[in-house]
Simulated assay, not measured.
Amino acid sequence: MLELIFHRRMLEYPCLTADPQAADAIYVPYYAGIDALHYLYGPDYNSSSEQGLNLFEFLTTDSPESWNRKMGHDHFMVLARPAWDFSQPLGNDPPLWGTSLLELPQFYNVTALTVEARAWPWQEHAVPYPTSFHPPNLSLLESWVQRARRSRRTTLMMFAGGGGVGRNPTIRRSIRNECENNTMNKNVKNVNNVGMYGSGVGGFSKLCDVVDCSNGICEHDPIRFMRPMLQASFCLQPPGDTPTRRSTFDSIVAGCIPVFFEESSARAQYRWHLPEDQFGEFSVFIAKEDVVFKETRILDVLRSIPRGKVRRMRERVLEMIPRIMYRKHGSSVGLRAKKDAFDIAIEGVLQKIKSRGQVFAQ
Rank of each mutant, 00 (worst) to 15 (best):
H329P: 12
P82W: 04
V317R: 02
R69L: 05
P29F: 06
R69E: 01
R323M: 11
N92T: 15
Y270W: 08
D343Y: 01
D44S: 12
H273T: 08
R176Q: 05
P105L: 14
P95D: 13
T17A: 07
P20C: 14
Y27F: 15
A119C: 03
L4C: 01
S174V: 02
Y39I: 11
C235F: 07
S143F: 03
V333I: 13
R297L: 09
G240S: 13
A345G: 06
E295K: 12
C235H: 03
D209E: 12
N92H: 14
G216H: 07
A22F: 07
V165R: 15
Y39L: 07
F56I: 04
M71R: 10
L318Y: 01
L113V: 04
E57N: 13
S151H: 00
R356M: 12
I217G: 00
E178V: 05
V110F: 03
I353D: 05
I34W: 04
S205I: 14
I34G: 01
H73Y: 15
S251T: 10
Q351V: 09
T131M: 09
L11C: 04
A22M: 14
I217P: 01
V301L: 00
E50F: 10
V194I: 15
R149T: 10
S233P: 05
R271W: 07
V284Q: 05
S47F: 14
S331M: 02
D35I: 05
P95S: 11
H38C: 07
I353R: 03
D277P: 00
I223S: 13
I26T: 04
M77T: 06
A32S: 09
P130M: 11
G200I: 02
C218P: 02
S251N: 02
H273M: 05
E315I: 06
L141V: 10
I321G: 06
D44E: 15
Q237E: 14
G98R: 06
V78T: 05
G200A: 02
V292L: 08
L53V: 13
Q237D: 11
G91T: 12
S66R: 00
G203V: 09
I324T: 03
W272A: 10
C218R: 03
T242Q: 09
N137P: 03
K186M: 13
S304Y: 00
I298S: 02
T154H: 07
P306Y: 10
L350V: 08
L101Q: 06
L236G: 05
R147I: 12
L37A: 12
E50M: 10
S199D: 01
K328E: 15
V333F: 09
L318M: 02
A126H: 05
N177I: 13
E281V: 03
D212A: 07
R307Y: 12
